[in-house]
Simulated scan of single mutants.
Amino acid sequence: MRPRDARSRPRCWTGERTRRRVRSGRTAREAHWDTTRYVAGTLVLFVHVAGPLTTLDGVRWLYVATWALRVPAFALLAGYFSDAGPLTPRGLRALMLPIVVPYLAVGLLHTLERRWATGEWRLFLDEPAWAMWFLLSLLCWRLALPYLARLRHPLALAVGAALCAGFLPADVGGTLQLSRTLCFLPFFLLGWRLREGLLARPMRAEWSRFAALAVLGTVFVAAWPLRDEVRPAWLQMRLPYETPSEVLIRVCVLLVGAAVTLSFVRLVPRRRLPFVTYLGAGGMYIYLLHPLALRLLTHAGIDYAWVGPWPEQAALLALAALLAAALASPPVRLLTRPIIQPARPRRRPPPPDRRDRPTAPTPTTPDAAR
């Protein structure tokens, strides 16, 4: 099945076929997705900040309850803004530049920071640095999308690949993060299908708002008694199955994750939210820069011994939100834009054809005029 032409494509659930253009020629940002980016980025940062505190009930509960609002949400966002058109040489260059440059540049920063903090050299190329695996997976997803879009049921195929990824040996599944690339591919394709018009009417219907509230409420309530039963490996999906029965667990993880992610996207307001939406434009800055910031804080001797009961855990979440706001702030974005969002080369206009050049008018003689 070939991807449909953009003019015949049904409206996506946000009500827009394409992103609007402002008078300056730049693409107008969609407030709904910027807000989603900020919330997802803040939750990713909080989980990494609270990594040593997973024995605390509140942190463990939030880790389980918000899993689908973090990396699955980022994967869905990446799919929503991906193009399934044919890969021309120019398109391939435009696809790889915003992924390869941040991967290499931020990986180099990890190498230098690690050298400064521990005194050892380590290059992050085939084995990505902390949280950088997502860029490798994103590159694979976007390269494969034009070919997956031609299939009749690409989403079902992606789910099957995610289930089979658990049978890969650890050394194979860990190479270039192949296991997680396959396991989060369904969320990427789900985002792309949303852009193509999947679930357009249900996502705009009023009843879906209440259904989304019910889904999120049920998950947050159920996550409390299950906080110690859910293994982190089931949600990270980077290691092989320990028992064949874990296939059923992964099916449940994917289905619940898709339902929670869609519910989260449905409930995010479409209008601009003060402060939050503006910072959400730097969602990728939060994701890529926060490991560097956390390593600096750890090297500076900041620990989490003060975190104990619920109020202190809530304070840690507030501090994570402040750090996310700092990383997405205009000064940080301006300083790191060359490596996080490298400028794409401008398209040169084609040279004029000689046949299209205006020719001098033929002089008219009196005889010819007759």
Rank of each mutant, 00 (worst) to 15 (best):
D126E: 13
G191K: 04
T55S: 14
R142S: 04
L262V: 03
M96I: 10
P311M: 13
C140S: 14
E16V: 08
P331M: 09
A31S: 08
R250H: 15
T181K: 03
R231W: 11
L138Y: 04
Y103F: 15
P232W: 11
V260L: 03
P269N: 00
L239S: 15
E127P: 02
C164I: 10
A233M: 14
R7F: 02
A233Q: 14
A293C: 06
A78M: 05
R93Y: 09
A369C: 08
V260N: 06
V332S: 05
R4F: 09
W13K: 00
A321K: 08
P269M: 00
A131W: 12
R21T: 10
P330N: 03
A369N: 13
T88I: 02
V71P: 01
A343V: 08
P363S: 08
T218H: 10
L97C: 11
T175M: 15
T336W: 13
F184Y: 12
S263T: 05
L182P: 00
L322H: 09
E120T: 15
R7Y: 04
D83H: 10
V47A: 15
A162P: 01
P331Q: 10
A360T: 15
A84H: 01
C183W: 05
A28R: 06
M96P: 01
A158W: 00
L138W: 09
R270I: 06
L182N: 07
G301N: 08
W61H: 14
R114L: 15
T18P: 00
R344S: 13
F220W: 11
P146C: 12
G119F: 06
W67Q: 12
V260F: 03
R227Q: 08
A94H: 14
C12I: 01
R295N: 13
P89I: 08
A300R: 10
R227C: 02
F264P: 02
L185G: 00
A68I: 10
A161V: 06
E196L: 12
A156L: 15
A281H: 06
V215H: 01
G280P: 01
S263W: 01
A343G: 07
E30K: 02
F167I: 11
R266L: 05
L226V: 06
P154K: 04
D83V: 03
G107E: 07
A170P: 11
Y304S: 10
F167G: 11
A223W: 02
R122H: 13
A78I: 01
V47H: 15
P291R: 13
L226R: 08
T36F: 09
L108A: 12
G160I: 04
R250Q: 14
A343H: 01
W141P: 02
G25E: 06
L125C: 09
F134L: 09
L97S: 08
